Simulated assay, not measured.
Amino acid sequence: MSGIPQQAPLSAGDVLYEAARVACLAPSIEDSQPWLWRIRGTTLELRADRSRQLTSADPQGRLMTISCGAVLHHATVVLAVLGAAATVERIDDPADPDLLAVLTLTGPHEVTAEEMRLHHALRTRCTDRRPFRGIAALPDEVLALLHRAAEPFAVNMHAVAPSQVDFPGFAASSAAAPQAASWMIPRMPPAREGVPTRAAVPKVTRTGPLHEQGRGEDRYTTYLAFTTAHDTRADWLRTGEAISAVLLTATTVGLASSVMSDPVEPLGGAPAGHGQLTIRLGVNESAPAAPSTPRRPRDEVIDVVPTS
């Protein structure tokens, strides 16, 4: 219609920058946000930021790489809702170990309703470390939905109830409070990153073999243990992608969630494969919304390389 200004289409650089910016809402271990983006023409490189690696808890960089996998999946969701088709190449180059993946724009993409739902979840999801207060077990159809979300990444997902978990086998406080004190920050300006103290909660009593059945403040939690057939950097990256897909899908059906840096040990033996990470899911309808955590400044994580 004449007289109505038409918005200019976004350039490839603008699309990639927006994808990188919004993807940084992804969860990461202890909110370390250990990623860097580099835009080169029609490509978006994902690199690990080793200055953010929790070296004492994560000397091999496994948790760092899993966190980067989550931000990679987030970027693909954003690109999709921007109407941009892209390929994802996962990189394992000993000569450049910090380069993890390259996304390349390939043309237009028709946005689906499911992609819109995931994008809304991406924008609204917050890590919730508090004990959950809702249903004791997730319905089978919800678990099936979450399994389908993880399947494309060749990562196995196994649901575990609190009563089936050997909690003395790992740090039970990992679901309730950040492990690395260096990432705790006071909630006052100019803090822009780390886990704010208002997002941490006291250690909770877990339901496990040493507790009476049905007791424990976290008895309404379902734990999802993620395992892989091998234990390579590619497996770690795909685990992060799968966890992102599952967390966003869980958010679309109203579930609260948080990530635990330890794999759980189910009674009777762990799922086959290498345990990578665990997430906890539940319903927290009676509690106020979980507080969000700050994000790193965009000029610190996004680098645009000029093209000739």
Rank of each mutant, 00 (worst) to 15 (best):
residue 33 Q to T: 12
residue 33 Q to N: 10
residue 33 Q to C: 09
residue 34 P to W: 03
residue 35 W to E: 00
residue 35 W to D: 00
residue 36 L to I: 09
residue 37 W to E: 04
residue 38 R to P: 09
residue 39 I to H: 06
residue 39 I to Y: 07
residue 40 R to H: 13
residue 40 R to M: 09
residue 40 R to E: 12
residue 41 G to W: 03
residue 41 G to T: 09
residue 41 G to E: 04
residue 41 G to S: 06
residue 42 T to H: 15
residue 44 L to A: 01
residue 49 D to V: 06
residue 49 D to G: 06
residue 50 R to M: 12
residue 51 S to L: 15
residue 51 S to P: 09
residue 51 S to M: 11
residue 52 R to I: 13
residue 52 R to N: 08
residue 52 R to M: 13
residue 53 Q to R: 12
residue 53 Q to F: 05
residue 56 S to Y: 13
residue 56 S to Q: 14
residue 58 D to I: 07
residue 59 P to K: 07
residue 59 P to F: 05
residue 60 Q to T: 15
residue 62 R to W: 12
residue 63 L to V: 01
residue 63 L to F: 02
residue 63 L to G: 02
residue 63 L to K: 03
residue 64 M to R: 12
residue 64 M to I: 14
residue 65 T to Y: 09
residue 66 I to N: 02
residue 66 I to G: 00
residue 67 S to Y: 07
residue 67 S to M: 05
residue 67 S to Q: 07
residue 68 C to V: 10
residue 68 C to L: 06
residue 68 C to Q: 04
residue 68 C to E: 03
residue 69 G to I: 08
residue 70 A to Q: 07
residue 70 A to T: 10
residue 72 L to D: 02
residue 72 L to C: 14
residue 73 H to I: 00
residue 73 H to C: 00
residue 73 H to K: 05
residue 74 H to R: 01
residue 74 H to C: 03
residue 75 A to V: 10
residue 76 T to E: 02
residue 76 T to L: 07
residue 77 V to I: 13
residue 77 V to L: 02
residue 77 V to H: 01
residue 78 V to K: 00
residue 78 V to G: 00
residue 79 L to P: 10
residue 80 A to R: 02
residue 80 A to N: 03
residue 82 L to V: 09
residue 85 A to C: 07
residue 85 A to V: 10
residue 86 A to G: 06
residue 87 T to I: 03
residue 87 T to P: 05
residue 88 V to M: 07
residue 88 V to L: 11
residue 89 E to C: 05
residue 90 R to S: 07
residue 91 I to W: 04
residue 91 I to A: 04
residue 91 I to R: 11
residue 92 D to R: 15
residue 92 D to I: 11
residue 95 A to T: 15
residue 95 A to R: 11
residue 96 D to Q: 13
residue 96 D to H: 10
residue 97 P to C: 12
residue 99 L to Y: 01
residue 100 L to I: 07
residue 103 L to V: 15
residue 103 L to C: 11
residue 105 L to I: 12
residue 106 T to Y: 09
residue 107 G to H: 08
residue 107 G to F: 04
residue 108 P to W: 08
residue 109 H to Y: 12
residue 110 E to A: 13
residue 111 V to L: 09
residue 113 A to Q: 07
residue 114 E to Y: 12
residue 114 E to R: 10
residue 116 M to N: 14
residue 116 M to K: 13
residue 119 H to Q: 08
residue 119 H to A: 15
residue 120 H to N: 12
residue 121 A to T: 08
residue 121 A to R: 06
residue 122 L to W: 00
residue 122 L to Y: 01
residue 122 L to I: 07
residue 123 R to G: 11
residue 123 R to E: 13
residue 123 R to Y: 02
